[in-house]
Design a protein around this nucleic acid. Sequence first.
DNA 1: CCCTAAACGAGACGGTACGTCTAGTCTTATG
DNA 2: CATAAGACTAGACGTACCGTCTCGTTTAGGG
Lengths: 203, 203, 203, 203
Amino acid sequence: MSAPAIPVQKRTGRPRSERTEKAILAATSQLLAESGLAAMTIEGVAERAGVGKASIYRRWPSRGALALDATFDEYLAGQPTEDTGSLQGDLEATALDWTRAVNRSPWGRTLRELIAEVQSDPILAGAWKERFVRPIRQQRRPIVERAIARGEIPKGSDPELIMDLLYGPLYHRYLNGHLPLDDSFARSVARMVAAAASDGAAV
Amino acid sequence: MSAPAIPVQKRTGRPRSERTEKAILAATSQLLAESGLAAMTIEGVAERAGVGKASIYRRWPSRGALALDATFDEYLAGQPTEDTGSLQGDLEATALDWTRAVNRSPWGRTLRELIAEVQSDPILAGAWKERFVRPIRQQRRPIVERAIARGEIPKGSDPELIMDLLYGPLYHRYLNGHLPLDDSFARSVARMVAAAASDGAAV
Amino acid sequence: MSAPAIPVQKRTGRPRSERTEKAILAATSQLLAESGLAAMTIEGVAERAGVGKASIYRRWPSRGALALDATFDEYLAGQPTEDTGSLQGDLEATALDWTRAVNRSPWGRTLRELIAEVQSDPILAGAWKERFVRPIRQQRRPIVERAIARGEIPKGSDPELIMDLLYGPLYHRYLNGHLPLDDSFARSVARMVAAAASDGAAV
Amino acid sequence: MSAPAIPVQKRTGRPRSERTEKAILAATSQLLAESGLAAMTIEGVAERAGVGKASIYRRWPSRGALALDATFDEYLAGQPTEDTGSLQGDLEATALDWTRAVNRSPWGRTLRELIAEVQSDPILAGAWKERFVRPIRQQRRPIVERAIARGEIPKGSDPELIMDLLYGPLYHRYLNGHLPLDDSFARSVARMVAAAASDGAAV
DNA sequence: CCCTAAACGAGACGGTACGTCTAGTCTTATG
DNA sequence: CATAAGACTAGACGTACCGTCTCGTTTAGGG
């Protein structure tokens, strides 16, 4: 009825070395931080990690997949979701957290290039959604639930719509760069989304 | 014996051929439509156009710049800005136009990859903002002005903020692909932005 | 593999650089002399010559073809065919020349490895025959003709058979190494071939 | 390369499996017959034999050594040395035997590539001489002894010289391919060698 | 009857070189 | 000068094998 929770242990052959895996991810992170995804090559990673290229290809199907894993490793800390007491407060905290994170170089640059890489590789795009987008959104879902519980917004309000309204404008300035992505903008967006949701427009 | 009174435009050398330019752009468009930006190479364009690589480099500094020009050539038709009589109506028309345009393959794919390309090339990013982002936004500016004139929203409402609130969520689903970008979503976004602006949250 | 006798005039494009060609052949010769054919790689040649790999592949289809050309360039001096006054004298001079040439390291090693390389590459084998084997044999043909003119051997004697009888045993010891290939052996072979030919056994 | 004459008694551990050894040799022979030595790889043999690579390296030091053993296994039948009653007859029988054997594909191809392999591996060259060259020559030695006994050639005639005179030209055409190696050539060589030896030129 | 130790199949390991591809520049002959 | 053609240096690509090194398992002989 379901996939095995604990994958069956492979029976034969030399097991993959954890040391090798860590060396590859570390080298990747370094290179990404130094010069960005565009300048990161599999050969470069292999050399820096003191590893054969085959050991990389054995584990990751593409440069993007490797970069994604390495970036995810750094990101895992995640961001908090503390209750500020109001919908607008929660949205503002979320927007400010994200804004400050992506303005942090070089992580911000890598994220930007990773999103770019994802645009022309459907397999990678799937991983991106699973590993980055979905977790962050689920983490923020309680914000809407708390607002409903508080009676700030109607019961049927769509959390997905609200999340897109909040994150969308931030990503937009981040990737297009037509106007600055700063704290002030983050606060404005949060204010507008809170207002719209309170009006019941998200139902 | 005497210098010309009005300095004549330098006339030495063979002038650049218009035929060459058109052949390059046509070949680029074809290749983009066939296999996307990721698979488009300068060598491929040169061969398809029956042109030397140098003739391309003489005109465009990079693959992205060429692709941008070729795509812009196709895009010039633009979208209308007719007055629907209400802010929400105007926003909805705008959102639906954009949504339907990017859902059109292969143009949608090329745009997506172009945005990707822009992420790691600052020069190209500048061109992108000038040529695509700014014109579209200026074209839509009257929407806010009309809404103020109608008294739907306060005088000090920020058109840039409203534009970001509208386009941001659309781009977000377009590039991240976590949820479908369809007419229904476009209408929901327009409704929410109109609601927020009416509340005076965009001041 | 080599320049055509009558080079077809290429109409367009940048012509191949003579400098590049010479640098490649020089680097190849050096590497062959230093460590032999088995250790010579296309990458190594490219690096030593300060040349892109593509420039090598543009000119030679395989490592063996390149090595053959480089070795031929060194060999071109050739060996004399002076008339010693008798068949046995001429054969002996020929055998001694060849013996001493192949005992000369590193040229002898390269020749040995080149013959080896030829065994599993039919295209290369053709070039080998044309460029090395046939010229040498034709150069030695007058030996038999002079012997006939002198009346030492019958008119119908087969020069090819006599050449094989002379060179065969020398190559045999050279490649098999079961017994030393020295001047004494060269003289013995020459003596026997002369004796057999005088008996009219080569008719 | 092969089992030692007096196998040192191993004290402990699992003994080497005869099945494994046979599977390796069989797979090697198959691959040699199918595509030749140049295309035969240790990995390919291991896979075909259903054997770990280490089990091959435990037994043979190199690809050439393995190929030599596998080929030798097939060759063991050897060739007869019957007395035809005359030196020329014996030489002719020998030459024809060898000629026909090497013209037999794929065995002929493998032998050719094996000789090639030997040229750049001194250790393998030693094995080659011991295992192939010497046995064959010793097998043919009685030919000369019988000729002396018959009084066809002088007592001091050098068997090694005569063997080189006979085999050399055959190997020469076999490896160089400049002219066909056929029965007619084999007979001519035998006739010439017999003539020279009768003249006492082999003393 | 277990213990020891080597051999076993499998396959990962760090490497090297392959032959191909594209980048961006340079060099020719021809307009 | 610009052009089409194509050679130039440079270097990454992904693949194939190399010879070595773990794994967990098997298989004998000696204690």
